[in-house]
Design a protein around this nucleic acid. Structure first.
Length: 527
RNA sequence: GCGGGUAUAGCUUAAUGGUAAAGCCCUAGCCUUCCAAGCUAGUUAUGAGGGUUCGAUUCCCUCUACCCGCUCCA
């Protein structure tokens, strides 16, 4: 991305964040206390939007399918579950920092090196009387000049100088000593500088069960789940046995997960608390690869149906070596966010890894009798795992639009429109009496509101001029506005009696529709 | 976690070591017959904590959050 494009996208993102706050889609968590890093709250409209997304996902994946069952598992998770899944111990990265360049490196990805280690106890500057006592060393590999070590060390110690006018070259190094080493990973391959000791970053939130549990009591340890998937695997046997299922079949779940991200970023995109919409689709071993491709297509269709067009999505076929070790095939579905192309959903073929692990660790039989093969087997699993909050953010970014409109006086102005698909829009219809100081109009509008509220989210507004009310609805993405005027009351004759103005958000066009038809007209377009 | 930036009303901006200003928005009233109209009135702010000072939004320190770049994202 060029600097200009990057700048433009930053401005776009700021506008989106501002609108989300101003109109009550998304607020920073605990804002009045200064905010909580990596956590966000949904306001009234955000909550409606999210509910629409979750409801539609559930409808498509559970309600309309005979072969997928729903569940809703606990967030607090038994530590043995996460030991079996590999999250305890494995769900962390040892990291170290370069003392000179401050670069952060994965400790397990540093190539072992051989060479001479030059160590120093500190440095001083004679003229100013400045000195520092701090051990530091530099690796000089074969073929490199030993003066490189001294130069690097002086640069390191120069960081502590209070007088930045002093050149690092003028520093006197203290107590140089050398030592031959082989296969060391304590030095930055880039510059030879010493690294900090590797530190563990565990990405799970840990807690203790029981009100009186002590911090040191290992048996009371529980975790907030880092993914919803594990509750599905641990309940696989119960769900299968209570529902007379046969392969292939799936278990679906929507729920919160928690990861102690090192660096939450990009608005709600990488949050520490987030919601997932996951399906574990169990199948015979020979079906896994084909089902992964089928699920990819189903999921792309889903995004199309909620208003995220195929051309704004990217499919990443995750190559060998970059997939999780248990996965034979993974597709990442990515969206073109203003801040870059980022993952919305992963469709992963996880083989029989999870059930086998839980069978092994729990000692319980998790085999499944397959009627067709007439044998017991550990089912394989294909996992379409979607980020709910990420999809919400994508819906918001996709919907946001600013268009220039010219009014009757020829004056140009910007119309901000959230072009949500009617299916996802937080408010489906606004009911507006043309004038609020005419009781007959207000009364009629209230009647229409009552007709519609059992079926959809309706917003009633009688304040301000009608044009202003239309624009307010544009800004929150309400696809339809209904205006009640004197024709509705029959003042222009029987023909227009009990008809209203129906105004379309995207085109701003208006049509006349009878009140009797209104409900079905709207339902057809929002379902 | 590192480096850089930012923090004043719901939003966009102003100003000041001594009563924090405006526009938009919002609320109420009047008026208004279909795209942010007009008039009147009104609500709302210096991110948190500490220090210097008679007095700090302003100067200094610490913290927090957000943005950008690294890093990370099983």
């Amino acid at each position: 991305m060029s600097d200009a494009a990057s700048e433009k996208n930053t401005v776009l993102m700021e506008k989106i964040v501002s609108l989300c706050k101003r109109r009550g889609f998304i607020f920073q968590s605990a804002e009045i206390y200064g905010g909580l890093n990596g956590c966000w709250d949904y306001g009234p409209l955000g909550a409606e939007l999210k509910r629409n997304l979750k409801d539609y996902w559930w409808r498509k994946n559970v309600q309309e399918r005979e072969d997928i069952l729903g569940m809703d598992g606990s967030i607090l998770t038994h530590q043995e579950v996460l030991k079996a899944s590999g999250h305890v111990g494995g769900f962390s990265d040892p990291m170290c920092d370069c003392l000179l360049s401050k670069a952060r490196l994965r400790a397990d990805q540093i190539e072992p090196q051989d060479g001479d280690v030059y160590s120093y106890a500190g440095a001083s500057h004679e003229e100013s009387g400045w000195s520092v006592d701090r051990a530091y060393s530099v690796l000089v590999t074969e073929g490199q000049d030993e003066n490189k070590a001294r130069k690097t060390a002086r640069l390191y110690y120069a960081q502590f100088l209070t007088d930045k006018q002093i050149s690092p070259k003028k520093l006197e190094l203290a107590d140089e000593s050398t030592e031959k080493v082989e296969g060391t990973t304590q030095f930055n391959p880039e510059n030879g500088s010493l690294l900090t000791e590797p530190r563990e970053f565990n990405l799970m939130f840990k807690t203790h069960m029981g009100a009186s549990a002590e911090d040191g009591d290992e048996s009371s340890v529980a975790y907030l789940r880092p993914e919803t998937a594990q509750t599905i695997f641990t309940q696989f046997k119960n769900v299968a046995e209570t529902n007379r299922v046969k392969l292939p079949f799936g278990i679906a779940q929507i729920g919160k997960s928690f990861r102690n991200e090192i660096n939450p970023r990009n608005y709600t995109f990488r949050s520490r608390e987030f919601e997932q919409m996951e399906i574990e689709f169990f199948c015979r071993p020979d079906e896994g690869m084909a089902l992964t491709d089928e699920w990819l297509e189903l999921r792309l269709k889903f995004y199309e149906e909620i208003g995220i067009p195929r051309q704004h999505l990217h499919i990443l076929d995750v190559p060998d070596g970059e997939r999780a070790h248990y996965s034979k095939k993974t597709y990442d579905i990515e969206y073109e966010f203003p801040f870059g192309i980022q993952e919305l959903e992963g469709v992963a073929y996880r083989t029989d890894y999870d059930l086998s692990k839980h069978k092994e660790c729990s000692g319980k039989p998790l085999d499944f009798f397959d009627d067709e093969a007439k044998e017991k087997l550990i089912p394989h699993v294909v996992e379409p795992s979607a980020g709910c909050d990420r999809t919400i953010l994508a819906l918001i970014c996709e919907a946001f639009d600013e268009e220039t409109v010219t009014d009757e006086k020829g004056k140009e102005e910007v119309r901000t429109v959230m072009r949500f698909s009617p299916r996802m829009a937080p408010i489906k219809v606004a009911v507006l009496p043309l004038l609020k100081n005419k009781p007959e109009l207000v009364e009629k509008a209230r009647e229409i509101q009552q007709i519609l509220t059992p079926f959809m989210t309706v917003f009633y507004d009688e304040t301000a001029a009608i044009g202003r009310r239309y624009r307010r609805q544009d800004e929150v993405g309400t696809p339809f506005c209904v205006t009640i005027d004197f024709d509705t009351l029959g003042e222009s004759g029987e023909e227009l009696k009990d008809t209203v103005t129906l105004r379309h958000r995207d085109s701003m066009e208006q049509e006349r529709i009878s009140i009797a038809e209104l409900r079905n007209f709207l339902l057809d377009r929002i379902h």
